[in-house]
Each structure stands twice: as structure tokens, then as C-alpha cells.
């Protein structure tokens, strides 16, 4: 079973968000998402200084199997990107919630956090997805 840290928030499209004390937040993709994609071979990162809007595409992760957009969970400015992923995209597979973070954003509107899923809600969603697949 995939790991879902309780202190994180999630998007239905499988991004996670870790809020820091300084008004910034880290963004990555969930353990469930990296497992579904398989071995990652390329991560297209946003650029530092980019302003992104919640719901927009902010990057792409590509595995040997497929490409998948990474959506922005929050509106704000990109203040850091995980450049280690340029040479080691597999960090997203091995440590999706740690060394495999993708970018860091300065939140323009922390109230947007309310629109995101809690760890529990996200766990329910992926369980439902699994049930749907089993019925096929």
C-alpha cells in the first residue's frame, strides 16, 4: 500500500503540498502517483520566478511508460525548484515526499489550502479509484 503522510494536503490529481512556517509550500507527487507511473526518466520543472495559478499546469513528469502533467495546487510565485531531478528524476520514485520534491511556491492566497484534500480524503479517493478499476 502506498504511503500518505498525514501532515500533507493533496490534489485529486495526486500532487502533495507541505506548508512551511514562512508562507511557502513544497509541492511533489504522491507515492501512489509515482508507483502508477513507474520509473521516472524526466521531470520538466517550472522556472524560479514563474507566477502560477492554482489548477494550471506547472510541469511534467515522464516515466518510461507515460507523461503526466503536474498541476499547481496553489497560486503564487515559484521560489525554488529541485534541480537534483534534472540528473536524478528517480528521486521521485525512491523518496516522493522528501528528496523527490519538485518545486517550492510562495503562496499568494493561503485560503486556497481549504480547497485541497486532507490526507484522509486523498486516501479515500485512491481507494475508490482502485475499486472502480477492480469492477472493470
Amino acid at each position: 500500500m502506498s504511503e500518505i503522510p498525514s501532515e500533507l494536503r493533496f490534489m485529486a490529481s495526486h500532487e502533495w503540498i507541505r506548508v512551511e512556517n514562512d508562507g511557502t509550500a513544497y509541492v511533489g507527487i504522491s507515492d501512489h502517483a509515482q508507483s502508477a507511473l513507474g520509473d521516472l526518466v524526466y521531470v520538466e520543472l517550472p522556472e524560479v520566478g514563474d507566477t502560477i495559478t492554482a489548477g494550471d499546469e506547472a510541469g511534467v513528469v515522464e516515466s518510461v511508460k507515460a507523461a503526466s502533467d503536474i498541476y499547481a495546487p496553489l497560486t503564487g510565485e515559484v521560489v525554488a525548484i529541485n534541480e537534483a531531478l534534472n540528473d536524478n528524476p528517480e528521486l521521485v520514485n525512491s523518496d516522493p515526499y522528501g528528496d523527490g520534491w519538485i518545486y517550492r511556491i510562495r503562496m499568494a492566497d493561503p485560503e486556497e489550502l481549504e480547497d485541497l484534500l486532507s490526507a484522509e480524503e486523498y486516501a479515500e479517493q485512491i481507494e475508490e479509484e482502485a475499486d472502480d478499476q477492480a469492477e472493470d
Partner: peptide, 19 residues
């Protein structure tokens, strides 16, 4: 194995790491 549908068959796509 991670099993997927392949032409109507339940087949292994990988057993952990395709690479």
C-alpha cells in the same frame, strides 16, 4: 507484478522496476 490489461489479457507490465 503490476497487472494491466493488454489486448484483453491480464498481463504483468513490471514487477517493481521496468528499467
Amino acid at each position: 507484478a503490476k497487472i494491466v490489461d493488454f489486448g484483453g489479457w491480464d498481463m504483468p507490465i513490471h514487477y517493481g522496476s521496468q528499467i
